[in-house]
Design a protein around this nucleic acid. Structure first.
Length: 598
RNA sequence: GCCCCCGUAGCUCAGGGGAUAGAGCGGCCGCCUCCUAAGCGGCAGGUCACAGGUUCGAAUCCUGUCGGGGGCACCA
């Protein structure tokens, strides 16, 4: 469903204007340029794409800055300051603009009327959790494929980060207007699910009181013991002492179902739910792999050939082999890639092509795959396949998730897969909690390694960003409770009616400015598929709020609880607007805001 | 040998064409008779790995070098 319309939350589609002050002012700048062009003061046909309106790095430069004059100077054949001065004259005439100054090499710095910030606060109060929703992705469908762990065991820490990232990205894109599908590709077609079946078979024998033979190469984990029990309950002794050929298929399918049920539970612990589960195995024998490859063949992108050995590192058993190859090098890949082995069976790449062909066929405008960083070698071929299959219509973005390094008390936390003592998603969530886990996993860019310290993530201090943001949330709610006790109506509608001109102190306007950046931040984060930006923004917002809070220690006029009801209403409006944005941001991260600290 | 990611303050990391490059931690100095000090303010700390190039402007884009990580024909 499309975010705004389907969620019951107010938003652009529900008739409320998108309150993005930066976008508004950019429009104002473009209008000013158009006016100058009509008056013959600028040449026609200028490319305005690079014109940006941004918060300046230095607050002393004003509330917003535009590079318009510098960007247009060369194509217009004019001095940037001349353009800037002409623009400043027009912009200063707008009621939202208090000052427009030309600075530096041709920056145009704008200072806005306080009423402009008041409008933003009012929008936040009226729109509540929907404040910041964007129509950026309106009318577009995106498929986010993530986790896609092999159904051979519980999810571990690495999967956890991918799950959190994918889910937060899906929430972000929905908030920015896209229609989003969350999808899990079950890798149940390869040899590893046969290993799963054999491992489960040994646990099945164990359930019958026999000694399990967990040979090298089988999955040793305890999690298969209940699967063995369940097999016994379902099939009794039917498969005991029978050759593999008699039980492999049945037990494999049984075990896969159990593993997927377990994975769904693990994901649910994190608050992640998928819209679609697609099975690799289900592609076999349906002709869909053949159909996808035929599509490529029709484009002359499939051929029989022999690959060169990889340069520099010659595999010992390398020998020239005739294979069916996909001409991925025509789409930027380094070499062509085999889709069929020399014995005629498919490589793993073939069903991947069919699966992506299926996604393309379902009409998505954009595909996003989330892979572990150890799969970086597949990025080019997958992009090549999608480009070929969709004739360039569908963009595939692949986000690589770097590994998570676990720590405990600052010491590396070693895990051994051999001994079966790897740290599972469940371990992490049980120790840290879903909210903390999710937030922490988003405090790094996806392509940077992340340290996760079991002790530090639970620490209650400002060097723990989760706690710091939650503390701000708790303070917001604490003040709202006190204001209500003092007789003030603290709902959004009432506060939106407050006289916000009472908010004139620079420290208060700093916070309002930060709130006004939220809709812009949402669009930047969504454009780049970068949910971590939301986490960093929330930290900054919390910081502004804590700063203002402490100003009240020294200056009673800046305290939120006031004797004069009109003054208090304005201040509480600012507090509530802060809370609205914290909640909206945390909702994108999938984290529940706290209302009090314990 | 080739491909991908990374290199920013002592440490952990944001920023990815724009002005004097930021935050947290660590160090130093301040702020509670006052809405939660679990907090806030200030000071010190930088050749944005290096060298070229593009640009009015480069930490950001391009090329190369060095360093770290990952991946490199029928395994998924």
């Amino acid at each position: 469903m499309t975010g705004a319309a389907g969620s019951g939350m107010p938003g652009p589609a529900a008739g409320n204007p998108v309150m993005n002050l930066f976008a508004e002012i950019r429009t104002l700048v473009l209008d000013a340029i158009a006016t100058l062009t009509e008056a013959g003061r600028l040449p026609p046909g200028l490319d305005l794409a690079a014109v940006a309106v941004e918060p300046p790095r230095d607050p002393a430069h004003g509330d917003m800055a535009t590079n318009a004059a510098m960007v247009l100077a060369r194509p217009a054949g004019m001095n940037p300051r001349t353009i800037a001065e002409a623009l400043a004259e027009r912009l200063a005439a707008d009621p939202r603009v208090a000052e427009a100054d030309v600075a530096g090499p041709g920056f145009l710095n704008l200072r806005l009327q306080p009423a402009a910030w008041a409008r933003v606060l009012r929008a936040a109060l009226q729109q509540g959790a929907g404040f910041g929703r964007s129509s950026l992705g309106a009318g577009q469908r995106v498929n986010v494929e993530f986790v896609s762990a092999n159904p051979t065991g519980p999810m571990h820490v690495g999967h956890t980060r991918g799950a959190v990232f994918g889910d937060a990205l899906a929430r972000l894109l929905a908030f920015a207007g896209w229609e989003v599908t969350r999808e899990y590709y079950i890798n149940d077609g390869g040899a590893q699910v046969d290993v799963l079946a054999r491992s489960a078979y040994e646990r099945y024998r164990e359930a019958h009181g026999l000694e399990p033979a967990i040979r090298e190469g089988l999955y040793p984990g305890d999690y298969l013991i209940p699967v063995g029990e369940a097999l016994k309950d379902t099939y009794g002794a039917a498969f005991l002492d029978k050759p593999e050929s008699e039980w492999l298929t049945t037990i494999r399918d049984f075990a896969i179902r159990r593993m997927m049920a377990m994975i769904r539970e693990d994901l649910a612990l994190l608050g992640v739910t998928m819209d679609v589960y697609s099975s690799e195995r289900a592609l076999y024998g349906t002709g869909r792999i053949e159909a996808a490859l035929q599509t490529l063949r029709d484009l002359d992108l499939i051929y029989e050939g022999v690959l060169e050995p990889p340069k520099g590192k010659m595999p010992e058993d390398w020998e020239p082999r005739q294979q069916t190859l996909f001409r991925s090098s025509a789409f930027g890949d380094d070499v062509d890639r085999p889709v069929q082995k020399s014995d005629g069976s498919w490589t793993y790449f073939a069903p991947d092509i069919a699966y992506h062909y299926d996604k393309v066929s379902r009409g998505y405008d954009q595909l996003i795959d989330i892979f572990g960083a150890d799969h970086s070698g597949y990025v080019k071929r997958m992009k090549a396949a999608v480009a070929a299959l969709s004739q360039g219509r569908v963009a595939l973005d692949i986000k690589l998730i770097q590994l998570v390094k676990l720590f405990k008390n600052g010491e590396p936390f070693k895990m051994s897969k051999r001994a079966g003592t790897f740290v599972t998603l469940r371990d992490v969530v049980e120790q840290a909690g879903a909210d903390v886990t999710r937030f922490v996993m988003l405090t790094r860019k996806n392509d940077a390694a992340l340290d996760f310290d079991f002790d530090k993530v639970l620490e209650q201090s400002k060097d723990n960003p989760v706690w710091y943001v939650q503390y701000a949330s708790a303070r917001v709610h604490s003040v709202l409770r006190r204001a209500a006790d003092a007789g003030l109506a603290t709902d959004g509608a009432s506060l939106a009616a407050a006289d916000l001109a009472q908010l004139a102190h620079p420290a208060e306007l700093d916070l309002a400015r930060k709130i006004a950046e939220w809709p812009r931040l949402v669009e930047i984060a969504a454009r780049g598929n970068e949910p971590h930006r939301v986490a960093f923004y929330l930290y900054d917002l919390a910081s502004e709020f804590h700063a203002l809070w402490n100003r009240g220690n020294d200056d009673p006029a800046l305290r939120f609880i006031q004797d004069d009801p009109a003054v208090m209403a304005a201040k509480i409006a600012l507090v509530r607007a802060t809370g609205v944005v914290i909640s909206a941001g945390l909702a994108i991260l999938g984290v529940t805001p706290v209302e009090e600290m314990r």
